[in-house]
Design a protein around this nucleic acid. Sequence first.
DNA 1: CGGGAGGTTGACAATCGTCAATCAGAGTGG
DNA 2: CCACTCTGATTGACGATTGTCAACCTCCCG
Lengths: 239, 239
Amino acid sequence: MVRKLAYWVELDAADEEALLNLPHRTKNLERHGYIVREREQTTHSCVLLSGFAIRHKIVAGGARQIVAVHMKGDIVDLQNSFLGVADHSVQVLTDSEVAFIPREAVKTLAFERPNVGVAMWYDTLVDGSVFREWIANIGRRDAHARIAHLLCEFSLRLKVAGLGEATEYELPMTQEQIADCTGLTPVHVNRTLKALEAENLITRRTSRSITIGDWRKLAEAGDFDSNYLHLRAQEPALG
Amino acid sequence: MVRKLAYWVELDAADEEALLNLPHRTKNLERHGYIVREREQTTHSCVLLSGFAIRHKIVAGGARQIVAVHMKGDIVDLQNSFLGVADHSVQVLTDSEVAFIPREAVKTLAFERPNVGVAMWYDTLVDGSVFREWIANIGRRDAHARIAHLLCEFSLRLKVAGLGEATEYELPMTQEQIADCTGLTPVHVNRTLKALEAENLITRRTSRSITIGDWRKLAEAGDFDSNYLHLRAQEPALG
DNA sequence: CGGGAGGTTGACAATCGTCAATCAGAGTGG
DNA sequence: CCACTCTGATTGACGATTGTCAACCTCCCG
């Protein structure tokens, strides 16, 4: 669980032990439950043990923009917690299990065990890299490429999290949520998904299960290059 | 210079001393010079001593998306350098002075002096917060609000950097660059700036000097709330 | 004075949004 | 087992924000 950090940096047994011994409180949240709301004071970081979560902001007029999607093992709230006041909300998409860890304990551990500290820092930087790619995705790609890109990202991340295959997975979101990720409207997302299907880039058995027919073609359609995810393994060169 | 970090966290004399003693090499870059190019290996972090810089990504088709703008005192390349391979390019907008610091030296210092480490971490998180706001800005606001928002952000950040007043400053960018920040086209940026001027929200003596007539109204038009910048001082409640 | 970068403007096109209706599937209670 | 309901998916007609193309203008600088 907390060991996703080990993905980034070599951790020794003592490091892992220390991570597992962090004081924490586990909580089960129901679908649509909030982990933090924008403008709240924050005192805890948290780790998603199961389920999915999103970070979002509400703009004038009530529109919502999702700025990140998180899955099992992700450290969800380093961001907000160290800054004191949340600049965005975090909400779970599905019933989820979340571990809350006091901010001070995280900070102490980070500096007592440089390996852990580096891993957390690294994790934060990768988060930042994903944010940047999203800015580019939303700012400079059309709907077709935006959604193809998002589907590619999920494909790889779900696989790394052990939640699916690169070419087939359960999409954790509704079309409205995809719209909020991509800066589009649900209606347009629907049409675009249909278009991707018509081009045989993807297939949907149910509305949520995505099968990628030709990974490379979808990546090309989405101008997707996995570099920004800073994964150790390369993107699947498979058809 | 490097002391901008002191903005975030109390640093004692020894901390400051250590920062100033970091091994570094100063370099003068000409307008449009690159600090790093996407996909390059990175080994140094750097601090902008003077001038302006942007981070950007190029998407298929050659369009550019600017993901961040940096000014005097900003730590520009923690992001890329720790991840090994740059996921975006960094380019200076104007003739600039840049200090390069070996990545290892930064890492060592961060863990030897927790105050410094926390300050750097904090700085990284604030960067992330700005990224998130940009995602929301580009994804869910129309051109009018997007540009108003950007102008408000510059207003506060330039002021904090000691480069202008909240209500009057020199815009460091061309309209094309503003377009690349906001996911718009230069033509549309031009029209939108004219519109903002027509509403008396801003005045432009020259094409680059922005004067904000009524800060509050511009902030309202841009749905701007300075919370995401995590500044210690509040936004100017001035007219 | 010539060249170039950047700013301005107009006419037109297109991607994407809005509104609104309908449909499909899952869970619930009778 | 069958309404009933609710959420989410789908579709069509229409409108509008934003993009494209292209021309022209205005500085600034050597």
